[in-house]
Design a protein around this nucleic acid. Structure first.
Lengths: 150, 150
DNA sequence: AAAAAATAGTTTAATTATTTAACTATTAAA
DNA sequence: TTTAATAGTTAAATAATTAAACTATTTTTT
């Protein structure tokens, strides 16, 4: 591939990923209750998927410091959506789990977000969206490999 | 397409787009000077591409209120990377343009970011990445149409 | 077993990003 | 020529983030 062509693809990728990132954030926000943020949604989503989760894991998933997670989880604990429990074997570890209200909220919200994604994903053919997601998943694997080596 | 299958694709899309969003943000951050943020990079990038730009345009691109843009541009003006100039015909309008330092910074940073993107984009075949970006671009157009109708 | 090092998480202080509501200045419409 | 609308700013509040210092606990080393 020529240098010109690669530079062109890179530029297109940067523009389009910026626009989708910002637009997707705005669309997700519309589906949330007034007092909830996108990051709070993503945090609760991660915890639901893992069932139980530590600050360290979340910090790694979000790519931020652990103290950022402490601050976020504090707000969610105050809102009654999350609870902390200590590991009995290793008392340094704190597990984060959903409260009943937290579970109810994330379940309802996931339904709204699924409908949102469905509203545009169905505008693509199954082949196109499958190929798109597969490349996306490959990108995740490449990122993970880069992490391991550097 | 069956309901099962769509739900599965939606779930994969949500997971993968979250992971790429967070990971990409972390990688971009690594390329920036200590005192610069990702949003500041994206803001300067947008202004460079448009040459001159208003708060209203940026607020729409970023999907935030105009006052958020005022705050961000204030910081960049204080840093000497951006300047404001009033339109002579319509004195309500303020144009944002790069200072010489701002232009130098974004040019150097774009080079770093391009190298970063190149480091993973070249792990795909030209066909795969072209198809990926085309679907991405189609997604942007769908978002824009949704904006028009709703 | 005692001392040193590593790990998990929190606190604190500072900065950035964001929203909403009220505001100024200017232009366009009635 | 009032009245509307538009462009942008200000102010107060909240959320997200980092870096550095800290507590508590567990693991490793000597």
């Amino acid at each position: 591939m020529q240098k010109r062509n690669i530079d062109d693809l890179i530029e297109r990728y940067l523009s389009v990923s910026f626009m989708v990132m910002k637009k997707a954030a705005a669309l997700v926000k519309c589906e949330l209750d007034e007092d909830m943020t996108n990051d709070q949604y993503y945090l609760l989503r991660c915890i639901k998927k893992k069932a139980k989760c530590t600050s360290t894991e979340l910090a790694s998933l979000f790519g931020v410091n652990k103290s950022a997670i402490t601050a976020m989880t504090n707000r969610l604990v105050e809102k009654g959506l999350l609870q902390r429990t200590r590991d009995q074997n290793d008392r340094r570890v704190v597990y984060l789990t959903l409260t009943e209200r937290g579970d109810k909220w994330i379940t309802e919200t996931e339904e709204k977000i699924h409908k949102l994604v469905e509203s545009f994903i169905t505008k693509f053919s199954e082949e196109e969206i499958e190929a798109f997601i597969q490349t996306y998943e490959k990108l995740v694997r490449i990122f993970q490999e880069m992490e391991g080596t550097s």
